[in-house]
Structures are given as structure tokens and as C-alpha cells.
Amino acid sequence: MTPRLFIEVARRSFRRSSTYRLATASALFTNTVFGFLRASVLLFLANGGDLRGMSESDLVTFAFLSQGFIAVVGIFNSGPLTLGTAIKSGDVVIDLYRPAGLQQWYLAQWVGDAGFQVLARGVLPLLAGALVYELTWPDLLILPTFALSLVLASLLGFALRFLVALSGFWVFDVRGVDAIVTLISGLFAGLVLPLNLFPPALEDVARGLPFSGMIQLPIEIFLGTRSGLETVWALVFQMGWLAALLAVGFGLLRVATRRLVVQGG
């Protein structure tokens, strides 16, 4: 796939996502409401003080910022990555008749959509939170690093959902797999609770899993709770898992398309 084609696909995906106005508005509303809900739960837990090294404003910022991550990293659904249903319906033949790698094709769509989601659903929950609470704002110098970490988080989300979609070649019930991954990634990415509030043993496990790179790590970079070296490590960790998951996806795709049975006539 040429860079030009990648960009053209991403652009169209961005534009397509922007046509779903009502869905975007209602999701944005929900994300924001849940931001307030989670913020008050965390404040209740903090009980007027710090909580495992997080100040009240850190906790609140975590709540609103992570709500903005949901659509960008694809916690609850696969967004434009419709490969799973296409495999089930047989529409995947259309994908296979394209002179472009299937993984890159969907990745380009994911990137375009994520770009839209950052603008439409990423920023506003945080701003809404800022109207009510005092938030922790990052050092401007860290913003480029945060942006990089955010991009890696979104790509990790793609790599993961791509594996879910591919399971459609072998598993009858992709939606079941999808639901399990949604549950696990929501929990271990830090959406339900920041990972540092987990019991220590569980936190260690969670920090070793790729999901932590989808929300927890980029937000820690934003909040400035990581030292310089720890920040570098976070990025390396994200890149490592990303490379690994993409490679597994690529390999499985090859296996699948070699001995493929396309459904439906």
C-alpha cells in the first residue's frame, strides 16, 4: 500500500465518521456524563486526600481524560474495523479482491476514524470537567510525547481489535470474543479504575499486559507522574506490544487467506 493510498483511505474514513453526527453527539454526551460519575467516585475514594500517589486533581483528570480515550483506542467496539462481520457475512471477498493488504487497508480506516474521534470526543469531556473541577494540566513540553503515546495507544487498540476480527475465520461467535475483549481491555487499560488503585499483585500483572498501553500509560505521561526514563520505557513498552500484536495479526491473516473458506454465495 502506498503512503498516498493510505492517506486517501484515512481521509475517507475521517469523513465517513463525521457523517454520523447524532451517534457522535450522543456518545460524546455519554462519555462526559460518565466522566463526572467516575470523577465523583474517585473523589469519594480519595476522601479528601491523596490516593496511592494521585492528588484529587490527578484523579479527576484521569477520569475525564480516559473518557476521551474510549473512542480513540476503541475500547467498546471496533469502529471502522468491520472485518469480523465481513468474514461472517462473506463480504470479506470484497476486501480480498482489492490489490491492497487487508491489514493496512483497515489500519488506514482506523487512523482516519481515530483522528475524527480525537477531535469530536477526545477533548470535550476534559473541557467539561475543567468547568467544574480543578484539573492537572501537563507541562507543554511533554505534550508531543503524550501525543506520540496517544497515537501508539490507538494503534494498539487497532492491533488488538484486528486479532478479534480475524478470530472470525476460526470461531463461530466473533461477537462473543469481541465482548470478552471489551471487558478485559476496559478493566486492564485502566478505564474502570486507574491501575495504581488495583491490589498491588494485580497491578503488576496489568502493567505487563498490552492494555495498559491503551489508557493508563499515556495518561500517566499527561499527568507527569512518570520520570523521564519511565516515560521512555512506557513508549518502548507500547511499541513493543504494538509490533508484536501487529505481527501476530499479519501472520494469522496469511494463514487464514491461504486456507480460506468464504461464507455465502
Partner: peptide, 17 residues
């Protein structure tokens, strides 16, 4: 397959590209 798709046009009555 990929090489072939460059010279191939495919139309399905029941699917859309």
C-alpha cells in the same frame, strides 16, 4: 491473488465495494 486483482474486475449482485 494480489497481482491478479490488479487485472480483474469483480461485481456481486449482493455485495458492494
Amino acid at each position: 491473488r494480489v497481482q491478479l486483482t490488479r487485472k480483474l474486475g469483480v461485481v456481486f449482485g449482493t455485495r458492494s465495494q
